[in-house]
Every structure is written in C-alpha cells, then in structure tokens.
Write a protein that binds this DNA or RNA. Structure first.
Length: 133
DNA sequence: GCCAACGTTGGC
DNA sequence: GCCAACGTTGGC
C-alpha cells in the first residue's frame, strides 16, 4: 500500500464537502508530476487531505477507491475517485510538519507547489500520531 | 498584496 | 534544444 498527500483549497473543495459527497473525483490537477503521482495510485491506497491557502493543515485521511481514468475536461490529465475515511482529532499544521525532524524530507516540503505528492510509510505514521492525539 | 519557486510558452 | 518572458501556486 502506498501513501499520498493531496492539496485542495478549502474554498474550492473542502474536507466537509468531501465527507458529504462520500465518493468524489479529485479534479483539476494540471501538473504533469502531480498527474503521474495520481497514475501511480492503487485502489486502497490512503491519502492525506491538506487544506492549502487557507487552513494550511492536514485535516483527515482519504482512501483511493477508483484508480486513474481520463479527465473528461482534458484528456491529457486524469482523475481518481476518493472517499473520506476519518478526520484527524487534531489537524496537523504546516508549521508542525516543518518543525518535525522526521518530516524534513517530505516531498511536499521540498516542492511546495506540487499538489499531489508521495508520503513514505514512516512519514505517514509520524503524521498520524500527531493527528490522532 | 508580495514574492519565491516552479512550470509553460514561443521565438530563435 | 535553448532560454527569456510570462503565468501560476501557495506560503507569508
């Protein structure tokens, strides 16, 4: 199983909307590196939901329920379907990620503009421990 | 609102 | 294929 982090601006698509929608496609990724990460996703993989621009925190965990398929808006890009699994008790702030020594190599920190990035198993565990406190 | 860090575009 | 100019993302 692989782990991911997916960013969304909450005023465009928020965690609460994701929860209400149950299963929804992850749309509007227009970056090839992010797309390639989406193509690498397998059914059953888990992903953090991160609120960018406003919030700046990981708010919960999602599961990939359908692997990549062409984006009808632009066939060069793809969609995956995701489902909210559970919210964090304590959202994990960007500032927490930045200050934690075990997370210094996180892909999203190294490349802040990448909207879909891989998370290692170790990073996943560390972040979940903070979020479930 | 600013700006750093990228990514994309288009002329050559 | 290079690179300057421009556009976008996203934190501050």
């Amino acid at each position: 199983m692989q782990y991911w982090l997916m960013k969304s601006e909450p005023f465009v698509w928020s965690w609460d909307q994701q929860v209400a929608a149950k299963i929804a496609p992850w749309t509007d990724v227009r970056n090839y590196q992010a797309r390639n990460n989406m193509k690498a996703m397998k059914k059953g993989d888990q992903a953090f939901f991160y609120h960018s621009s406003k919030g700046l925190e990981i708010v919960g965990i999602m599961e990939i329920v359908k692997e990549h398929y062409p984006d009808p808006q632009d066939p060069r890009f793809v969609l995956v379907d995701v489902k909210a699994l559970k919210p964090f008790k304590t959202p994990v702030k960007l500032s927490d990620l930045k200050t934690h020594p075990a997370l210094a190599d996180m892909a999203m920190l190294r490349q802040s503009r990448l909207s879909v990035s891989p998370i290692t198993a170790g990073e996943w565990k560390t972040i979940c421990q903070i979020g479930e406190k």
